[in-house]
């Protein structure tokens, strides 16, 4: 290559990269016009990745919908920390029905709005649904797949923290291999969650051929917002899978949430990409590749891989998974 394209980014911090953008494209924490759909005062843990992800996703969707947005929410951390009655952090119309039916409830909302609009009783209103990985990949999976295949006009957002954190950190089908949870213990040299199990829902969403599927992390809020905005440009079923590290469940200090998300992305263990109509159209390239070990080591859920002895075999298998993602989603320049 005879010329090197200039890239504006700085590793380690987010704000500098943001500052290099024109003002209108910047992601900002707070400004007068911000909807604050998930308002302050809720009861999420310190450093909660899900609270951060939800705040950016819902506000971006609100902005795209000109404030005409309704949200359905699955049972889980997000529902519980935002609403102990009579307090609510939600500044938009919001409904929680059950753990496993959120996608179907959202379908019902969208159907009702369609009829109400045809009757001239309501203006155009958009619908989002949101849940954690348990409510999405496990118990809510049938309803979600139904919503996908019918191409119902809903943006479904999964906040993936790799387990059932609300009930005390149990395994879900999104828990990574070798992770210790309350139901995949690592006692007596056991591995924790088994290899060869679990599912990566974005690929299943892709297989439905729906208009838009994307992944994102809370390490790149600008990318997250852009994906929500892009998703809102489509009608029909759309899916956004956001990696949201959980200090409690993963076992890392609460000020390192963004760092964990970034290491997941930079190691390749969590591929960040976007797909339209069943085809991957963009991948967020790894800026500075790190070994997957750098991502695992700071997390107590993987501590048994490092002590009392180094579990080289498990680390190698996890590195293989990251490398496979890098090849599959072309996350490094040499894989392009």
């Amino acid at each position: 290559m005879h010329e090197q394209p200039i890239k504006f980014y700085q590793t380690g911090t987010f704000t500098v990269g943001n500052r290099l953008l024109p003002p209108e494209q910047r992601t900002v924490q707070s400004r007068i016009k911000r909807y604050n759909s998930l308002n302050s005062g809720h009861r999420a843990c310190q450093g909660c990745g899900e609270a951060l992800g939800a705040r950016y996703c819902v506000d971006a969707a609100m902005e795209a919908a000109n404030g005409r947005l309704i949200a359905a929410n699955a049972t889980g951390c997000l529902e519980v920390f935002s609403t102990p009655y009579p307090e609510t952090s939600w500044q938009l119309p919001w409904i929680h029905s059950l753990f496993g039916n959120t996608a179907a409830v959202a379908t019902g909302i969208a159907a009702a709005l369609k009829v109400k609009r045809a009757k001239g009783e309501r203006r155009h209103i958009r619908v989002i649904a949101q849940g954690g990985d348990g409510g999405t990949t496990d118990i809510g999976f049938a309803c979600l797949s139904g919503m996908f295949e019918r191409n119902d006009d809903v943006l479904y957002i999964c906040y993936d923290n790799g387990g059932y954190m609300n009930t005390g950190v149990q395994r879900s089908s999104a828990t990574p291999p070798a992770a210790r949870t309350a139901t995949t213990p690592s006692l007596e040299g056991a591995l924790g969650n088994a290899f060869g199990q679990g599912k990566f829902l974005p690929e299943i969403a892709l297989a439905h051929g729906i208009p838009f599927v994307a992944t994102a992390t809370v390490a790149d809020l600008h990318d997250l917002e852009a994906k929500v905005r892009r998703a809102m440009e489509f009608h029909g079923a759309r899916y956004l899978h956001v990696l949201v590290p959980c200090p409690l469940g993963w076992g890392f200090p609460s000020h390192e949430t963004i760092k964990m998300a970034r290491l997941a992305k930079e190691s390749g263990i969590f591929p960040v990409f976007a797909a339209e109509s069943g085809e991957v159209v963009a991948s967020a390239p790894i800026r500075r590749k790190v070994p997957v070990e750098d991502y695992l080591r700071p997390q107590k859920r993987f501590a048994h891989l490092f002590s009392p002895t180094l579990n080289l075999a498990a680390l190698a298998r996890l590195q293989e998974l990251a490398d496979r993602n890098i090849r599959k989603y072309r996350l490094l320049p040499e894989t392009l």
Binding site: I70, A72, I95, S97, L98, G100, N101, A104, V105, A106, T107, G108, I109, A110, A111, A112, L113, K116, A142, C143, G146
Partner: peptide, 14 residues
Amino acid sequence: FAALSVAIGASATG
């Protein structure tokens, strides 16, 4: 389960 859940969402939307 989805049938009644769709009805729940629709009914809550009026």
